[in-house]
């Protein structure tokens, strides 16, 4: 039996019907067409589906959709201001912090959560925080450097 679910998605209120077993990832991708969060493993291992739940990074594939009632969800689609990229997006793009790009939406959301809570992380803190986001192309070093560059103020809003 589906239930009504209301939450805020990238700044806009959303009212949908969701089944009790439906994950937030399924709801976003299949029902709402928000395909930034990716389905890499669907069991919480790879981090490609990472979104922010009231500012905290969560695996949307392990989050039951109905549990986000009344909360605020931010996906990669909510990072840029129109065509103005978020500093992390700019840094990832300009520094080549991805190859295939499949992990990037999840990486960006994890990185945003890190810098929102800790604007000047050490390299160790970046590595620890990003350890749940896998990149099979091996862009880890560029990801770390991009986050460091944003923290250093090299990419302004």
């Amino acid at each position: 039996m589906k239930e009504t679910l209301s939450f805020v998605l990238n700044g806009s209120p959303v009212d949908v019907l969701a089944a009790p077993t439906e994950t937030l990832l399924d709801l976003l991708r299949e029902q709402l067409g928000v395909t930034g969060p990716k389905r890499g493993c669907d069991e919480g291992d790879c981090g490609t589906c990472t979104v922010l739940l009231d500012g905290q990074p969560v695996r949307s594939c392990l989050t039951i959709a109905l549990t986000v009632a009344g909360k605020e969800i931010t996906t990669v689609e909510g990072l840029a201001d129109g065509r103005k990229l978020h500093p992390l997006q700019k840094a990832f793009h300009e520094r080549g912090a991805f190859q295939c790009g499949f992990c990037t939406p999840g990486m960006l959301m994890s990185a945003k959560a890190l810098l929102d809570g800790n604007p000047n992380p050490t390299r160790r803190e970046i590595v620890d925080h990003m350890s749940g986001n896998l990149c099979r192309c091996g862009s880890y070093e560029e990801v770390i450097e991009a986050i460091q560059a944003v923290a250093n103020g090299e990419y302004k809003e």
């Binding site: 991708r29 299949e30 067409g33 395909t35 930034g36 969060p37 990716k38 389905r39 996906t75 990669v76 689609e77 990072l79 840029a80 990229l85 997006q89 700019k90 990832f92 793009h93 300009e94 080549g96 991805f98 790009g101 499949f102 990037t104 939406p105 960006l108």
Partner: peptide, 23 residues
């Protein structure tokens, strides 16, 4: 020279469509 990718903005904004993104 190291150049930014021509399609990199798509990857960084989530606009790039992978096959499973087509519904």
């Amino acid at each position: 020279m190291s150049m930014p990718r021509y399609d990199g903005v798509g990857q960084a904004t989530g606009r790039t469509k992978y096959v499973d993104d087509f519904v």
